[in-house]
Design a protein around this nucleic acid. Structure first.
Lengths: 188, 188
DNA sequence: TCTTTTGCAATGCGAACGCATCGTAACCTG
DNA sequence: CAGGTTACGATGCGTTCGCATTGCAAAAGA
């Protein structure tokens, strides 16, 4: 066996470049050449690590999904309501990290509408997220349909993210809206 | 002046074809050739009515936005809550008409994140919609921040639309969620 | 040392792209 | 009925695309 290279690390570097291109210029601008240039490597290298462009995109999607999941996993609090609030705010483009990821997620989300291979991870990961949010709600408010409130909250933050990205809502208004929705959920 | 052709009608035919291509295969698949083929006309004709591809896309966006606005305008009811419920449900892909439009809107919405020219109509039309929803809420519940609830409801249905399109939520669950959110808004 | 395998860089290919150009048939105006 | 303008269809150009192919340097086993 030849040169010692970290295969996964190389793939992650390229996946990062994909996300950077998407964030700056949208999904349309993602081409093998642009990604290679953004990553500062040759096009041959990109092809070496990904058989097709679709594979590359799918990998990038999973990579950024994992990163979001990791960011959410780092959110901790003893108080369920505080925990949930931090979780929801983490999904919005409020911090630099989230601001970089949100446009990428939005582009993938829209692409998933016509690309079942991208929608599949969503259908898998969504219920897990819903269940976790529901468990936080149930800790505070054991009776009542926590699952339903969880789904509603997640749909709400998804839409809010999009409206922020398109400049319809600014950061401070978004935080207010989240707090208001949380009030609604917890005062019932 | 030559042949009598309805200029606007021709543009609308092409705009329809753009939307059909987008709904079926996404924004990436929108090319002058595909659109021409979908509309059953020559590529020259498409070029004759639109100087650039971007002009064509912008026109199609405004066209479908107008159509949605028209569909919403047709919703009427004497009871504000019934009216609001019908309005929100009209925004979701529940009827055949809305099911055809929703993927197109989602694609445009995502594209607007990196294309300010598309985001501009959103920033213009959004507040008008919010104000109208707020007025409906205020009719039932004069005290309280109707505007805030309106924004939250609209963000919620936006997110719900996306989750429906990606197969995360089915139609009946979506309707339940909307009704539940309306309950929350009106029992405060 | 020699072979084999891996990690690329370079190049080429056919297809599709947006757009410009040209030709022409049809129609209104004078 | 001449002239001009409009509404195209057809074709071509230069670019970019995804992907296949080729070649080679370097390193691990024999």
């Amino acid at each position: 066996m030849p040169k010692q290279v970290d295969h996964d690390e190389r793939r992650r570097e390229i996946g990062d470049a994909v996300c950077r291109v998407m964030a700056a210029r949208g999904l349309d601008a993602v081409s093998l050449r642009h990604v290679a240039a953004e990553a500062g490597v040759s096009m041959g290298r990109v092809q070496h690590y990904f058989a097709t462009k679709d594979d590359m995109l799918l990998f990038a999607f999973r990579q950024i999904s994992d990163r979001v999941a990791q960011r959410l996993g780092a959110v901790r609090s003893d108080d369920p309501r505080t925990h949930l609030r931090a979780l929801l705010l983490e999904l919005l483009p409020l911090t630099p990290a989230a601001r970089a990821e949100a446009p990428v997620l939005a582009a993938f989300l829209a692409h998933a509408v016509v690309e079942p291979r991208l929608a599949e991870p969503l259908r898998e990961g969504g219920p897990r997220m819903t269940a976790f949010v529901a468990s936080l709600i149930a800790q505070v408010r054991p009776d009542g349909d926590a699952e339903r409130d969880a789904m509603a909250l997640l749909a709400f933050v998804d839409g809010l993210m999009l409206q922020m990205l398109t400049g319809q809502v600014d950061a401070s208004a978004a935080v207010e809206l989240v707090d208001h929705q949380l009030d609604r959920v917890f005062t019932t």
